[in-house]
């Protein structure tokens, strides 16, 4: 992308806006909302690795997310330090992801979706019912947020910047992943699994690695979640959460970098901001999803891009190319 392209300008402006957000938002409540959008966006980006690039739809990511949160929460409660708790949480999440992957990658399509769903429900069931281990419905409280390079993250802006750093790293790693040969091979397993196999690629291993990458970032976001709320309880691991993250990915647009971020923003804003003004926000959220699927089945970001191109072509050449008409599906 050239330095003068509109995309570069948009990117530069977004980065600038994100970096200065606490200054122009001011109210800590909205800064906190921004932090929430960012860490949910990390989960959505992580799930997108599987859904968008590997073509594997997981409904069990809430389990991985909660795994990180619970491991950290329980270790902190037991008196361990933040570093130990965080590392243990990531390791535990990676191990869980590996188990998830080994079991679920025996299948693709709906089978994969169902296995991940069931595995997620098992983890939820343990958090929910094994009260002597997880404190059940009462959840796990952690009293302090960590310090990061001497900065206390208790403050809303400080936590926002910490989250922004993680979010930035996640986006960069996703961008690298998408453009890398490995990313290409992941997409290959989505589109042409048999051909990839014939070409000598180990399709299973590629998918396994994609699952681990997805699990890693989900775990990182789970840590941010537990530090943000300083609390974790089984509801976080329920099917509802997995479904919401999947909705973020699909509504924003699978297989894009921006889509999951937009989707996360929609869901978080609906849940937290709009719910203060509209009592029936669940209804509105449902209607939004149905509308997106009915009018932009490919998701908001690719859909808007398509409409934009369509409008642009109409304006410039008055001869839209066949693939850009609304109604045609992207890809």
């Amino acid at each position: 992308m050239s330095l003068r392209s509109p995309r570069f300008a948009a990117l530069a402006i977004s980065i600038l806006l994100l970096l200065t957000l606490p200054a122009w938002v001011g109210n800590p409540y909205y800064i906190n909302i921004a932090s929430q959008i960012l860490f949910w966006a990390v989960v959505a980006l992580a799930l997108n690795v599987l859904v968008g690039y590997a073509g594997l739809v997981s409904l069990g990511h809430a389990g991985l997310f909660g795994m990180a949160g619970y491991t950290a929460g329980l270790l902190l409660q037991a008196g361990h330090g933040h570093l130990v708790a965080d590392i243990a949480a990531i390791v535990a999440t990676l191990l869980t992801s590996a188990i998830f992957a080994i079991l679920s990658l025996r299948s693709t399509g709906i089978g994969f979706l169902m296995i991940t769903l069931a595995l997620g429900q098992i983890l939820w069931g343990i958090a929910y019912r094994w009260a002597s281990l997880t404190n059940g419905d009462n959840g796990v409280n952690i009293t302090t947020r960590p310090e990061f390079l001497g900065i206390n993250l208790a403050n809303a802006s400080a936590f926002y910047y910490a989250t922004l750093v993680v979010f930035g790293l996640a986006v960069i790693s996703m961008a690298v992943f998408v453009r890398s040969p490995f990313g290409a091979s992941v997409r290959g397993t989505r589109d042409q699994a048999r051909r990839m196999n014939a070409l000598g690629y180990n399709v299973w291993l590629i998918r396994f690695m994609a699952f681990l990458i997805s699990g890693f970032w989900t775990g990182v976001a789970g840590l941010l979640f537990v530090y943000y709320n300083q609390f974790i309880s089984p509801q976080v691991m329920a099917l509802q959460t997995s479904a919401e993250v999947l909705l973020m990915v699909i509504s924003g647009g699978t297989g894009t970098l921006l889509g999951p971020v937009v989707g996360a923003a929609i869901v978080v804003i609906m849940k937290n901001v709009v719910s203060a003004y509209i009592e029936r926000w669940n209804l509105v959220l449902g209607v939004i999803f149905v509308a997106i699927i009915s009018f932009m089945p490919e998701g908001l970001v690719p859909g808007t891009a398509r409409l934009w191109r369509y409008g642009w072509h109409r304006l410039t050449s008055r001869k839209p190319s066949a693939g850009d008409k609304p109604g045609d599906r992207a890809q």
């Binding site: 909205y30 906190n32 809303a156 609390f231 203060a276």
Partner: peptide, 15 residues
């Protein structure tokens, strides 16, 4: 749920 309670407490206090 507890997480919702936390978010909403922040909403009414900070906003």
């Amino acid at each position: 749920n507890p997480a919702g309670a936390k978010t909403k407490a922040q909403e009414v206090v900070e906003r």
